[in-house]
Structures are given as structure tokens and as C-alpha cells.
């Protein structure tokens, strides 16, 4: 619809407004993250003297070296990574497998399962009963409390189901006649054909695991099981962060790392993975989301 007519005055006004407003949104979104990045790459003591707005003034990687030397942060990073990988794999497997079975017309009790899912999406028992259930199952304060309660989500299941339904049924039927089992069809035919929806749901689940601070704050007490976001919260409380700094500076005299600069480096480490992966995954999930949105 563009360029077939000469630009009218209205076109010029609209275009200017669109450019102006979109640039403002871009700057407002991007700058805070960029600001954190340049602070994290600057010498700590130097940054404390005068504010830095555009480029690192005294380039230094010492902040990152400090972060990667700290047991507390390393444990957090390790747990977050482990939780994200195990949790995402398990959840995507359980959910997609169930979704495959739920869209097979010959599954008995199908209606019952689907209504259970719909109810679970709109109602919840709330935090306290869940906590008591987790306690009875001895899941509290174990690594598995990160994984097991979140194995199945009906919203993600709907995304899978609507994608699977668009795969020609002839493929499934002919494989069944050839003697393949339902599981084999799911594993060998459906999964390879459904990469966009797998990428979408994996992204959602992985982001949930990477970002969550609630579970590690309230369902976990052991320090060696804590995740990165909780460590970040603790760094926010000054006194504790000060102690960490002191412990580090104690055996590294002449270091210029400050509380602030260390906090910036930790922030960047927890922002980096999603920021780097996101542009690549985005084209998948827009596709996967739209299919789901139309159905839902």
C-alpha cells in the first residue's frame, strides 16, 4: 500500500510522528540496559567519582572477575542454569506429549482431561495449600521443588495442541497402519514437524525458570540451592553486599571494585542470556503465538 501515491501532507505528519514516537520508545527501553552495561565495564572507583552516561571511561573487566570468583554468585549461577535446563526439558516433554495424546480423537476420557486442564488454568488453590502439599511430599527445600510442580501447564498445552492439529492427519494414520506406536509417531514425526511451537514454549518455560525468584525465596532455605535472582535481591541489601566486597578486597589489595560496580556486573550476567538468545528465537515464537492466539 505504500509509494503508489505521492506523499500528502498527512503522510508527512503521520510518518514524522511515527518515527519520533518509536524512537522515544526504543531509547526508553534500550538505554537503561545500556547504562548498566557501561557501568559494569568501567573501573569501580572511577565510576564513583563522576557519573558515566555514554561510554566506559576507564575500561575494566575486574567487576566480572570479582563476580566469577564469588562462591555465592557462582552457586546461584550454577543452580539457575541447571534448573533452567532440567526444568525446561522436562516441562516441554511432559506438556507436548500430553498435548499430542489430547488431540488424538480416540483417546478415552479426553473430555475429562481437557476440562481438568481448563479448570486448572482459571482456578487455583492459592499459595498456602500448595505450600502444605509440597511440604507433605517432602519437596520443600530440595532441587525438585523447582521442577516437579511446574511440569504441566495447560496454556502451553493449548499452544502445542493447536499446532499439532494443523499437521495433516494422513501422516499419523499411515504411520499407525505401518505399525508405528503412538509414542513413536509423536517422537519421530510430530516433534520434527513442530519446531516453531517447541521453540515458543521452550522460551516461555526457560524464561520462567531463569527469572523466578519466588520459589527460591520461599520454598528453599538451603543456601547452596539458591538461584541467581535471589542472590541479586541479597546484593540489594547493602550490608550483606558490603560484607561480600570486604571478603574479596581482604585478599586482593589495590582492588577498585565497589558495591555498585559489582551489582552492575551481576545484573548484566543475569540479563545477558535472554538478550542474546531472544532475537533468534523471536521469529519462531511470533509464529507459534499467533497460531495459539487464533485458537484461544
Amino acid at each position: 500500500m505504500n509509494n503508489s501515491f505521492r506523499k500528502s501532507r498527512e503522510d508527512i505528519i503521520v510518518d514524522t510522528l511515527v518515527w519520533g514516537l518509536s524512537l522515544i520508545v526504543l531509547a526508553a527501553t534500550f538505554y537503561p540496559l545500556y547504562f548498566v552495561l557501561i557501568q559494569s565495564l568501567n573501573d569501580g572507583a572511577d565510576a564513583a567519582k563522576a557519573p558515566i552516561y555514554w561510554f566506559p571511561r576507564d575500561f575494566s573487566l575486574e567487576n566480572y572477575q570479582l563476580v566469577f570468583k564469588q562462591d555465592l554468585l557462582l552457586t546461584g549461577l550454577k543452580n539457575t542454569l541447571l534448573r533452567t535446563i532440567v526444568g525446561t526439558t522436562a516441562t516441554v516433554f511432559v506438556t507436548s506429549m500430553a498435548a499430542y495424546a489430547l488431540q488424538r480423537p480416540n483417546l478415552k476420557l479426553r473430555k475429562v482431561y481437557v476440562s481438568m486442564g481448563a479448570i486448572s488454568m482459571y482456578f487455583s488453590g492459592g499459595l498456602i495449600p500448595l505450600y502444605l502439599v509440597l511440604n507433605k511430599l517432602h519437596l520443600l527445600d530440595t532441587f525438585w521443588v523447582y521442577i516437579v510442580p511446574y511440569l504441566f501447564g495447560f496454556f502451553n498445552c493449548l499452544l502445542f495442541m493447536s499446532f499439532f492439529r494443523n499437521i495433516p492427519e494422513a501422516l499419523t494414520e499411515s504411520a499407525l497402519i505401518d505399525g508405528a506406536s503412538e509414542f513413536k509417531i509423536y517422537w519421530k514425526i510430530i516433534i520434527p514437524l513442530s519446531m516453531p511451537v517447541f521453540a515458543t514454549v521452550s522460551l516461555f518455560v526457560a524464561v520462567f525458570h531463569w527469572n523466578d525468584y519466588f520459589i527460591s525465596s520461599f520454598f528453599i532455605t538451603t543456601e547452596s540451592l539458591q538461584t541467581l535472582p535471589v542472590i541479586l535481591i541479597r546484593l540489594l541489601s547493602l550490608s550483606e553486599a558490603q560484607q561480600e566486597i570486604q571478603r574479596y578486597i581482604g585478599n586482593n589489595t589495590g582492588s577498585s571494585v565497589t558495591l555498585e560496580s559489582m551489582r552492575y556486573a551481576t545484573l548484566i550476567i543475569s540479563i545477558a542470556p535472554i538478550t542474546i538468545l531472544y532475537p533468534f528465537l523471536q521469529r519462531f515464537f511470533v509464529k507459534g503465538m499467533l497460531v495459539g492466539a487464533i485458537k484461544a
Binding site: 511432559v94 506438556t95 506429549m97 500430553a98 499430542y100 495424546a101 489430547l102 488424538r104 480416540n106 483417546l107 478415552k108 482431561y113 481438568m116 486442564g117 486448572s120 516437579v148 510442580p149 511440569l151 504441566f152 495447560f154 498445552c157 506406536s181 503412538e182 509414542f183 509423536y186
Partner: peptide, 13 residues
């Protein structure tokens, strides 16, 4: 097999 495939999800729910 289909029932076994939904079982983990149903148990979790």
C-alpha cells in the same frame, strides 16, 4: 500408550 502419555500431566494437575 495414549493414556500413559497423558498420565504425567494428569498426575501433575
Amino acid at each position: 500408550i495414549l493414556q500413559l502419555m497423558v498420565l504425567p500431566a494428569v498426575l501433575a494437575m
